[in-house]
Amino acid sequence: MSTGELIIDDLRAGIPGQEILRGVSLTVRSGEVHAVMGPNGSGKSTLAHVLMGRPGYEVLGGSVSLDGIDLLSLPTWQRARAGLFLGMQHPIEVPGVSLVASLSAARAPAAPVGPGAGAERPDIGARMEEEADRIGFDRKMLRRALNVDLSGGERKRNETLQLGVLRPRFAVLDEIDSGLDVDALEAVARRVEAATTEWGMGVLAITHFHRLLDVLHPDVVHVLSAGKVVATGGDELAEIVDRTGYAAYR
């Protein structure tokens, strides 16, 4: 298991005309789970999308590196190949494109970027079924078009399944807990936590709520407010936030 770092350094970014992230710095090491909590509008989802390079966001300053690779200079697909994964808050419907087709394409040979990229896993179908079973995702869903006619909970399991098949170096999980019932939350969180030991995946879990963290056991908790990390601590910080709210951090 190699060790590596996802280093976010003084990241400033937003949408045209509006700076949302005003200098975010944090470092996630391989195998660590970091939680990012914060009130609505604090920039949590912006952070997730800027890391992945979603169109419509712009970077104003700072840097992001993954195992020494400058992520911000890469297009989205190369960030993914470098080992970054984003579990989306609102996974997007892609009509007519099945999970098996997309994961096969995702694993298709391309110019390798970064360590671990392009590692061949020959039988993607078997891998998918194994991952589906681990999180209680109906195998029938594997042939369906991506996210089409899936419930909110099924979409999150689908994201988690893809994470399990793609085995990223670092995963950003944007409210992976929203829309999940307690059982599904358990299954998803356990799968993510297992990945931290199975292949040393680092996790940046963005969440509103403590209940995800009860299962995911973060090593570090950050509170994001108005586009900055205003507090960093251990698991106890999440409990404090859960009890007292974000008022103290605004």
Binding site: M52, W77, A80, L86, A105, A106
Partner: peptide, 20 residues
């Protein structure tokens, strides 16, 4: 964007979407 975020090259992403 969704497909590219999984590591799919832009040209292949477009091909998949059009085929879909």
């Amino acid at each position: 964007y969704y497909l590219e975020s999984r590591g799919i090259e832009p040209e292949m992403a477009e091909t998949l979407i059009v085929a879909g």
